[in-house]
Nucleic acid binder design. Sequence first.
RNA 1: GCGCCUGUAGCUCAACGGAUAGAGUGCUGGUCUUCGGAACCAGUGAUGGGGGUUCGAUUCCCUCCAGGCGCACCA
Length: 572
Amino acid sequence: MSAWMEAKKEVLKALKTALGKQYAPSVDELETPPEPRFGDFAFPCFALAKGWKKSPVEIAVELVGHIEIKGLIRKVEPRGPYINFFLDTARFGKIVVEQIEQEKTAYGHSVSGADKSVLVEYAQPNTHKEIHVGHLRNFFVGYTTTKLLETVGYRVIPVTYTNDLGMHVAKCLWAMKKFHVKEVDPSKEERSAFLGKVYTEATQASETDPNAKEEISAVFQALESGKRGPFLSLWKKTRKWSIEEIKGVFKELGLIFQAWYYESDFIESSHLLIEDLKHRQVARLSEGATIVDLSEEKLGVNLLVRSDGTLLYNAKDLPLAMRKEEEFHPQRSLYVVDVRQSLAMQQLFATLKRMGFQKELTHLSYDFVTLKEGAMSSRKGNIVRYQDFRDSMVEWAHTETQKRHTDWKQTKMEKVARAVAFSAMRFGMLRQDLSKPIVFDMEEALSFDGFSGPYLLYTYARIQSILRKVERRSLEKRNMSSWKTEQEHQLFVTLASYPHVVFQTAQDFHLDRLAQYLFELCKQFSVFYHEVPVLQAETAEQMADRATLVAVTGQTIKNGLSILGIQTIEEM
RNA sequence: GCGCCUGUAGCUCAACGGAUAGAGUGCUGGUCUUCGGAACCAGUGAUGGGGGUUCGAUUCCCUCCAGGCGCACCA
């Protein structure tokens, strides 16, 4: 049992004794008071008021008289309609420390998902387009979701899906043939930017050129034919450019997948499957296209095949779902996809259901990233490229690091600058509720103060700095009974709630809660840091006890940051 | 037109239906002969409008206003 639960159970037991048989309170009724000075746990008396025909304020006063002070409970007092419980700092601190020291990197783990497997599809960049800051939200949300689910005991299967054969590819190749056929290939560094430029060019040209629609359709049909027709070599070459780039980005962001699916592998199986659906009267022809009519579910029509015979995205998602099932048999399947595709997702799920597919499917939706000027769009070409963003961040972090450590070697400087930059990037995308759009602002992204990744890293680095200075032998003198300040008390309470925060977040995927929690923990540590000296403690025992608290705080920050995909550093 | 989402401090964001609506940033003032100032403290300042449910509403329901997104051949 966690220290947190142990304390709650003890409070509950004391309450039960005081209440006798009149009322059986549950753990869930224990709340956290809005301010630390009100106590550590609160029991609201509203529910009792009805039956007892007294005001909750009176009930609180009356009950407090019957509550025994012992064990972890140091004080109980009524405050308005609440009974507030105060924990004994040293006793509670001891069990918190013992738990964290025992579990170490596993502190926060639980087994609620034990024996269950969940497949998470995320990171679906298209080939022939550039990776931009909008993709980052998907990458980081997806990554953190897999980490979170693993932390609560699921067997997680992360997979990625690349659209290497959609309309965008047809458009891009059409424009290449039309405008760039005689040019030499761009250098390796310029390839993705080149493809991005061609795609933007293609979209604009296709809007003005009256023959474009027909020509692009022909390109697409050729691409979907068995051997990609006359476009085979061009498609292979440009596809490879994109995939190499995507792989590079995944690698530098630490995204690892158990399977990598490509849309081009599902052309044949899509056609076969759709033929079958037509026979089974799940799908039918309409205006020359093939659809699944989902008006019964109020989901409109799921368009699978265009009237020119080429496939739409939703079509290829059907055999993909089958493939995932065959390969992994997951009990749950999660799709991390932005909110604009909510309807398409619901259509996909409904169609799969009609096909007899029974698994639990969830669309983990998040709102997208926009610019102050409005939506980012590859078609318009007004995107913030990932590489440009990353370079700006790293460069800025490098400048800031250099200011502080003129004596550092170049390699160390570079390593730290990257860690700082990536922490800012990830935290910036994860600190806010998924249902809200992120308005991307470079200036804000480059701010490393306050509620930011670097602040958390800085707190951790300071912790390590203290620990380096505390001699090892002094830790042996600890007796785990000298904690008594308000700052120490608050740290213990916050540390103890960590497993609960992780568990909650894995239930409802409000990833920002974890970010908020870690920030709160770091802020509390900063207060402790300024108010309670470790190295200047009064006695060796006190120093050892405080150093112990510092160490377990560091461990918890590290554990939490690792779920967010942020690597800690020892100095910065 | 129909559907989904969002309106909280100057700006960016929090708040299981509960206590005095919290942070970051900005601005003003302060801490420290620094266990690392990417820090800490104080002040400043907000629930789009109107109804309803409830002992209690930022939260739930209705309505209006504002913004975003989706709604058959993009993904």
